[in-house]
């Protein structure tokens, strides 16, 4: 897990990305247009034979939901989550919800 960028450490929120693994058609819009470049193509295939994105650098995510706005398959979206006191952004990031969602 890469280090959170300095800007992310001072934020009051944490960005999280949810990926609907089997709805993705691998167009790559979310990967290309993610401002902090959080995503990359997975090596694994989904049920339809596409490579969905996975999180490469989750601590840098700002939760701007631009991936959700671009995704033509409604397969990904980002949210902003309040960071609870004492838990800095980037630390204690739960296992990627990507595969679960």
């Amino acid at each position: 897990m890469p280090e959170a960028p300095p800007a992310a450490k001072s934020r009051k929120f944490r960005g999280r990305v949810f990926i609907n693994w089997d709805r993705c058609k691998g167009c790559g819009f979310c990967i290309e247009f993610c401002p902090p470049k959080v995503l990359k193509f997975s090596d694994k295939f989904n049920n339809h034979g596409y490579h969905p994105p996975i999180l490469e650098n989750e601590p840098a995510c700002t939760g701007c939901d631009l991936c959700g706005l671009y995704c033509p398959d409604f397969a990904i979206f980002g949210i902003r989550e309040a960071v609870s006191a004492g838990v800095p952004a980037g630390a204690d990031v739960p296992a990627s919800p990507a595969a679960a969602a």
Partner: peptide
């Protein structure tokens, strides 16, 4: 895959 219509629906 890569069609822009879904993006406009968002």
């Amino acid at each position: 895959p890569g069609c822009g219509i879904g993006t406009t629906v968002n």
